[in-house]
Design a protein around this nucleic acid. Sequence first.
DNA 1: GCGTAACCCTACGCACGAGTAGGTATGCTC
DNA 2: GAGCATACCTACTCGTGCGTAGGGTTACGC
Lengths: 212, 212
Amino acid sequence: MSSVPAFKRLPRAVREQQMLDAAVKVFSRRGFHAASMDEIAEDAGISKPMVYAYLGTKEELFVACLHREGTRMMQAIAGAAAPDLPADERLWRGLRAFFGFVGAYRDGWAVLYRQARGEQPFAGELATMRARLVEVVAGMLDHALRAEGREIAAIDLEVVAYALVGATESLADWLADHPDADPEKTATRMMNVAWLGAAQLLHGVTWRPPAD
Amino acid sequence: MSSVPAFKRLPRAVREQQMLDAAVKVFSRRGFHAASMDEIAEDAGISKPMVYAYLGTKEELFVACLHREGTRMMQAIAGAAAPDLPADERLWRGLRAFFGFVGAYRDGWAVLYRQARGEQPFAGELATMRARLVEVVAGMLDHALRAEGREIAAIDLEVVAYALVGATESLADWLADHPDADPEKTATRMMNVAWLGAAQLLHGVTWRPPAD
DNA sequence: GCGTAACCCTACGCACGAGTAGGTATGCTC
DNA sequence: GAGCATACCTACTCGTGCGTAGGGTTACGC
């Protein structure tokens, strides 16, 4: 019966990537708990014990997914933004790279953003990554502000950065749900909202609540 | 033994609310799948069959939570924004009401935003609610634009509205994680980001990508 | 004061899915 | 071509947690 081995034996590194691909796909659709190891194994075209042998328990597998997609995203962004460019140019490049990542790895984005958020054991890991992003954006704003001779409280800076990151994530989600949409164009739209608003802040324009 | 009934018998309406309170609390911490009906029942101070008798299966219970918190939120917002006010005033009141809701019902917000998103059966319901919000915001923007004699494509309007809603949700999440933070102040910060950016758009200022 | 309906409980059955035991085949090295 | 590591499988165990069967007790109408 050995004449035609139904499917090929492949080196570990290759199989691991296939498993991660399958896992990201299944986790993105079902969420961590509803996803079953059986389904992931089947989708990867392999049997369950292999998944356990290579990637460990379900939690470890999920963390591996988070790790791969997370670094993929961070590297896409980091590779795009040269630190010596003007703020708007850096922001633009960062956004373009980010939306490019989301467009290319929609499932990866869905796992990071939609699934890992609520699940207690992983939320922390994600929050850290997010915090790094917020910090970068806040740093950019602060830099631009100082260049104009202005300054605002650190907490305000953080919150504004948080809002910008949130808006960006939200558009990323919109992009993930609209397969025909153009990442580049989405980045432009985000730039419009973010930069125009931020520019106002930079020039010292602020909005104040009415007397009531 | 009947002399002191360990705990009182209560009418159905009261118990249902206690159960929903417990369910929202547990779901918000654990997520839909990781939450157990036993824990919810225990937290509500009642036995499991009662939960099934009153609120039905786990899915139905989750939907009931979504429903209660969702309408609570929508009503808070709707009750705040009189339709004949100027756009910035309406936006401000809407934001204030929204952050007020999040501050008052942090667990409810967490269920809506963090948990219901990824879980397939419920994501649709939530997306609809969110879409209604986006529509309202887009309508406001459109109204304000037309008042200035301007107009932009419907898709751009939608995406900008999406970004604003996303930024708001993100700040809401920040608020939910910072119990000491002031909802009112958070609303002001959001208003700064949103309105200043939107005002620019209203006046026809747009950002364009560099030639490359 | 007596029936009846509403409130509430202690158990269980049962399925589903994580993780493993134990074994087979294939290719690579010397 | 013998030995050995690596790739791979089928078929189980066992815990966990949803949902229920079957029965008890309190209040309320009449």
